[in-house]
């Protein structure tokens, strides 16, 4: 019964808060007589989704490809680089300060350049998402791989364990909570990166669509696009959370 009390209302309350937001939104628009072009009601927004003119599915596919593509590329490259750093002290001391400096570049500012180099389309937007998602994953993974108690190291060394054993049995599983904490931050950034890319220069995608309908003050479509972008982000974030639950023991999770 206690268990039920704890878990059921938690999910119920989460759903409730989302529903409540929609209700408040509805009441605000209706009672305040807010014009549709300033803020459409939830019903008007949903109407936009049913109209075939916007090509929602094609645009969702493009934006999702950019977000997921950039994100997984960042995950692969970030973890691989962090690994290389733990294996080579020279590599780390050479590249890490440089990477920290590069991290200071506002990645969004690279957008116009990336578009000059790679033209319009899915590729430059994927690269913007990648560049912005890379650093949190790289930095937290490198940190996690370094976090090993010296005595645990003694224990493995005392048994003449190999570097590979140290890595697979202690470092990598120990770093997983850190990797996931970086992955969560990166998920949020990847979404922002892809949309900024579409704003800067693109001919498809939800961000591009928003700019198109803005000209005609088609606010319901803009609202719907924002909701869909958010849902792609939530899907990515939810996937990361589910994976974390699967791979990281409760006690070891960082947040």
């Amino acid at each position: 019964m206690d268990r039920l009390n704890e878990t059921l209302p938690r999910y119920a309350l989460a759903v409730l808060s989302h529903i409540a937001l929609v209700v408040v939104w509805y009441l605000f628009v209706k009672l305040g007589n807010v014009p549709k072009f300033v803020m459409p009601s939830p019903v008007e927004t949903l109407d936009a989704l049913l109209s075939p003119n916007y090509g929602w599915w094609a645009n969702i596919a493009v934006t999702a490809t950019e977000i997921f593509g950039g994100y997984f590329l960042a995950l692969a490259v970030g973890v691989a680089l962090a690994l290389a750093f733990t294996w080579s002290k020279v590599l780390e001391t050479f590249f890490m300060p440089l990477l920290i400096s590069l991290n200071m570049i506002p990645k969004v500012a690279l957008g116009p350049l990336i578009i000059v180099w790679f033209k319009y389309g899915v590729l430059p937007n994927t690269l913007i998402a990648f560049s912005i998602a890379l650093f949190p994953i790289l930095l937290t993974t490198a940190r996690g791989l370094r976090e090993i108690e010296p005595e645990l190291l003694d224990l493995v060394r005392g048994l003449r364990g190999s570097r590979w054993q140290l890595f697979t049995k202690i470092q990598l599983p120990g770093a997983l909570p850190y990797i996931f904490s970086g992955m969560k931050v990166a998920a949020i950034l990847a979404v922002a990166g892809a949309i900024v890319g579409e704003f800067l220069g693109s001919d498809k995608g939800l961000g591009y669509l928003m700019l198109q309908v803005q000209v005609t003050l088609d606010t319901p479509a803009m609202f719907m696009a924002v909701i869909l972008i958010t849902m792609i982000g939530v899907a990515l974030y939810g996937m990361v959370l589910a994976l974390e639950r699967l791979l990281v023991v409760k006690d070891a999770r960082l947040d």
Binding site: E151, L155, K169, I170, A252
Partner: peptide, 24 residues
């Protein structure tokens, strides 16, 4: 070796923690 902190691996069950030296 036994240290001041137990230094068990958080992600391993107790039996698997005990088995670590045998694995290495």
């Amino acid at each position: 070796m036994v240290f001041q902190a137990p230094l068990l691996l958080k992600w391993r069950r107790i039996l698997d923690n005990v088995l670590l030296p045998a694995e290495i």
